[in-house]
Amino acid sequence: MGHKTYFHIKQTGRNLRHNWPTQLMTVMTISLSVLIFSFFLLIYLNIVNAGNRLGDELRLIVYLNEEVAPEVKQMYENKIREFGKVERIEFISRAEAFARLGRQLDTEKDVLADLGPDFLPPSIEVYPRRSMRNLTSLKQFSDYLTTLPAAQKVQYGRSWVERFGYFIELLRVIVILSGVLLVMATVFMVSYTIRLTVVAKEEELAVLRLVGADNKFIQTPLLIEGVLQGVIGSACGILLLYLIFRWTTGHLSGPGFLNMLDFAFFPPKTTAIIAGTSVLLCAGGSLISIRKFMRI
């Protein structure tokens, strides 16, 4: 019984040796599909990540006619929290707003000297929770905040949120499409090569049947063949992406878009999931051929 694996692997070796150009083409197709899919996935995940980090800075600013007296702050807070989920609320007085601007201007502080500390309006800064960070919720929230007493106008990075939302949506579609491509290419290519193996080995398979080989003896090597294509193909694809990633981050280092994004490679778990799924797809592809082309 212990020799089963040995014979299955030996048989697999014979099959592989026999039509290696096709095998090579299949492995290359799988690598390419894995590369394309994981490339877009990597970009998508990083952008989403960056979006979340930038989103932490996202706030609605309610400009007020007058300073909020300390005793009504609680009333404001309650009213705001009544409407939506809020991370935190900050009250900015005229003086604080002036001080902050001063800090931002730093060396050119002198320009403020003539204006006096009262020229900026007081405001309330509302940091919405993550679940509120979409255009519709923000718009509704903003409309509501306008109705607060003493509210003059409400501002938030509307166009930015809008564009970022579309961008993420587009990326999501691309990731899904390349995922579909990955599924179709791997399953098709693997089942195609296994079919070639079956056709090319028809005579041998017939002899194996005549001497009483059971299904396992005939099918297991074909399954191993598919799984092997999946393992090698996805390993190559992911390795290639990693090399591209290293090269790009190496050459585009310094202050720039990538650094702003804090671009990172997949964590090991995601890598394992991508590879594992590809291998499963390949196994599926070979099973399709085994079922279809061998009447058992």
Binding site: M1, H3, K4, Y6, F7, V207, L208, V211
Partner: peptide, 11 residues
């Protein structure tokens, strides 16, 4: 060797 391999005899 084929029929013996099919019976999983030892190499």
């Amino acid at each position: 060797a084929i029929p013996m391999e099919v019976m999983y005899r030892s190499p």
